[in-house]
Amino acid sequence: MLYPLLWMVASSFRPEALIFRDPSLIPTEVDTGHYADGWTALAHPFHVFLANSAIIVAGSLLGNLLTCSMAAYAFAKLEFRGRGILFGALLLTLMLPMHVVLVPQYVLFSNLDWVNTFLPLIVPKFLATDAFFVFLMVQFFRGLPKELDEAARLDGAGYWRTYFQVILPLSVPALATTAIFTFIWTWNDFFGQLIYLTKPALQTAPVALRNFVDATSGASWGSLFAMSIVTLIPVFIVFLVGQKYLVKGIATTGLK
């Protein structure tokens, strides 16, 4: 299962010629040259692309954690007219293929002059458009005992205080699952970043990596592999740190 990945790691330290001859996992001689070459092979050094990815991930994290949990709190804990219909609408947007909204969203964002900014990739997250996470948190909040937030309300805490000081602190598992999946999906995202970020200085790590394939037309597999591994490392670290929540999260909601 992990063999191809491990082989890629080994190959990134191998002299170019050996990549096509050596299927073993242990490099006979370690050569870090591919990393140095790959880092500077494109118009900008690779840390520019990594930083761009990091900015988009940070914005998405903040947006999703705040606004998805807000909507979920209303759906799970508060009564209001139209709750059933709106919740139905939420579930419908869960199943909607993104292609349907792709073109008009592009038209909207290009009319706002947001193409070649990070805004089209971050602002929607502050509008809780990732329905999956709203759903996940609704399920979690429903499981919190009603007495807790009722007690807080009786003590004179308003809804916002209850949300910030009672609900959120109790929901660390749901928030962690949301954070981990937001990180991994945003970091791996390609389509959105491909259409909205065309200026090289704004490109993200996956888009830069894709351009690298074209630029080298496969001539330098060593540095391609090296940069591929650089883009995989953050996901791998998040995976290691968040394993417990990941497994729980997919087991209960079927997220990928």
Binding site: M70, A71, A74, L78, E79, L90, L127, T129, Y163
Partner: peptide, 13 residues
């Protein structure tokens, strides 16, 4: 209160 919490999601939708 419910509508205040829902506002970002509703605008987004």
């Amino acid at each position: 209160a419910a509508w205040q919490f829902l506002l970002p999601w509703f605008v987004g939708m």
